[in-house]
């Protein structure tokens, strides 16, 4: 018996209309609509789209709870073997809808798959659900549909997934141990030779991707500004009262420096591993310039040095942890009326 699949698409791919029809509520249709044809054809009878759910992109974005409830109720009734959404390419709201409805359906215990361009905001969910990487426009349908169909069938048949680069899905953060055919030194040298010769090569250790935040406006009048110091260099009161780890820090510290004119080897130290701590322990101002900031404050060059500084150890600390620390203490800085921050790193 062939597997039963429900397909989710938006108003555009259902041929209802573009932006002017993006407000339409979810509707349930029998059988295949639009891009489902290509998926269905690729399954050659092994799986079949039994229903297509169509929803306007704006409707989903603006009425997420209602849209989800309606769609989930249909899915619960249909009890499909698989749920597939999109592909959404670089359509932001569509990608967001595909990813979100997939997350919700997956919670019902039904396997899901969607596809979109890597910069689609919906791609942020790539660690929660499987997302096939597609091109940025519908011109990529010809490649996307077979890749999605093949991967979907693999999942429906309970086959083991290949690596993300083999099966075409976005890296979902799961690592699997395996034996390489060639040892590391040879692979590294081969990679280097390819690089030097301008030939293509694939890194085995891709750097995490980082998002960007636009710069804030400059400070107009320093003499009225409250400036805070922060550091990833591990400067802490002597004895490291919060036990900040010397590497892979799990937390940050908030320390009061009101009335402190100078950090000395008697009062402060670094908790940071991975660099020679002698210089920072000798004079912690070499990492956190409290002495100079205090002088500038006394001279009226800056309005005030904020009473608290925030410190953690950057050594091997996960980006996700650092992000969490700073997101938290940034709110404290905001609440305290801090105008600008000097962050020092070792």
């Amino acid at each position: 018996m062939s597997k039963r699949v429900v397909h989710y698409i938006n108003q555009f791919f259902a041929n209802i209309g573009g932006e002017e029809m993006a407000h339409i509520e979810p509707e349930l249709r029998e059988g295949i609509v639009g891009p489902g044809m290509a998926l269905n054809a690729a399954w050659k009878g092994e799986a079949e789209i039994v229903n297509t759910i169509v929803c306007g992109d704006s409707y989903f974005a603006e009425h997420e709870a209602e849209a989800k409830e309606k769609i989930l109720n249909w899915v619960k009734e249909i009890k499909p073997d698989f749920f597939i959404a999109g592909p959404a390419f670089n359509a932001g709201r569509y990608g967001y809808a595909c990813a979100n409805i997939c997350v919700a359906v997956q919670e019902l215990g039904i396997p899901v798959l969607t596809g979109m361009y890597q910069e689609n905001p919906g791609a942020d969910y790539k660690e929660k659900i499987l997302i096939v990487a597609t091109r940025d426009s519908a011109a990529g349908m010809r490649q996307a549909a077979p890749t999605m169909a093949k991967l979907a069938l693999k999942i429906m048949n309970g086959e083991k997934l290949g690596a993300s680069c083999e099966d075409g899905y976005m890296n979902n953060g799961i690592r699997v141990n395996f034996f390489e055919k060639e040892r590391g030194a040879k692979r590294a040298v081969d990679m280097l030779i390819n690089k030097l010769n301008g030939k293509p090569f694939v890194t085995e250790y891709p750097m995490p991707s980082f998002d960007r935040v636009a710069p804030n406006h400059a400070i107009k009048d320093l003499s009225k500004a409250t400036i805070a110091l922060c550091t990833s260099g591990g400067i802490v009161p002597k004895g490291n009262p919060d036990h900040i780890e010397s590497s892979s820090a799990s937390h940050y510290g908030e320390y009061n420096i009101a009335g402190v004119d100078d950090l000395t080897s008697e009062t402060f130290e670094t908790a940071h591993g991975g660099y020679d701590p002698i210089y920072a322990n000798e004079d912690p101002d070499r990492v956190l310039p409290v002495d100079v900031m205090r002088d500038l404050e006394k001279e009226g060059k800056i309005g005030k040095l904020h009473d608290y500084y925030y410190a953690t150890v950057g050594n091997g600390t996960a980006v996700a942890s650092a992000k969490k620390f700073a997101a938290e203490y940034a709110q404290k800085l905001l609440a305290a009326g801090v105008d600008a921050v000097i962050m020092t790193s070792t």
């Binding site: 750097m207 980082f210 998002d211 960007r212 935040v213 636009a214 710069p215 804030n216 406006h217 400059a218 400070i219 922060c230 990833s232 953690t312 980006v319 650092a322 992000k323 620390f325 700073a326 997101a327 940034a330 709110q331 800085l333 905001l334 801090v338 105008d339 600008a340 921050v341 000097i342 962050m343 020092t344 790193s345 070792t346």
Partner: peptide, 27 residues
């Protein structure tokens, strides 16, 4: 961390030795 401070709306300057890392993290 600089990026989260920036995201909160506070201008921030990153003082560091390995500036390429600072560029990569988005200061």
């Amino acid at each position: 961390m600089v990026k989260e401070i920036e995201r909160a709306g506070i201008p921030v300057v990153h003082m560091c030795t390995v500036t390429p890392i600072s560029m990569t993290v988005g200061a």
